[in-house]
Amino acid sequence: MGWYNKRLAKSLWVFHVSGSPCNNCDIEILDLLTPKYDVERLGIKLVGSVRQADVLLVTGVFNNKVAPKIKKLYEQAPKPVFVVAVGTCPASGCTFKDSYNTVEKREDVIPIDMYIPGCPPKPEAMIEAVAKLIGVLNG
C-alpha cells in the first residue's frame, strides 16, 4: 500500500469524532482551521462525512452510550483510515477513568494509531502530530 499512502499524504482529509470529551480538545481542533494556525495550507481539510475521511480525530473518553456508535463510524470509514487520538482523555482516561460510564479500554472500541498527549494539547502539538503522520505515510 506504499504508493497509496504516498498519495494520501498529499492531502489528508480529517473527520472529527467526539466521544464524550470536555469540548476543549474539539475547540482546539476547530482552532486549527482558523487564521492563526490554518492547517488548510498543509492540505488538511475538515470534512463533514466520515465516508470522505482519511484520518479520524478522536477526542474524549468514550462513554458506554457513544462507544458502539464510534465503532460503527469507524466501520463506515473507507480503509485505510488512520485514527489519531487527541488529548489525555483517549490516551489514559484523564480524570474520568474511575467513572461508571466510561469504557475501560478505548483500544478495544477502535484501533488507535497515534496519541497526542495534553489536556488539551496545544494546536502546535496537533500540527506536529499530523506532520509526523505525513512523514510516516511517505515512508
Binding site: 464524550s20 470529551p21 473518553v61 462513554n63 452510550k65 457513544v66 480524570t95 474520568f96 474511575d98 467513572s99 461508571y100 460510564n101 466510561t102
Partner: peptide, 9 residues
C-alpha cells in the same frame, strides 16, 4: 452522549 459521571467521581 456526554455523560461522564462527574458528580459521582
Amino acid at each position: 452522549w456526554m455523560h461522564r459521571g462527574h458528580e459521582f467521581i
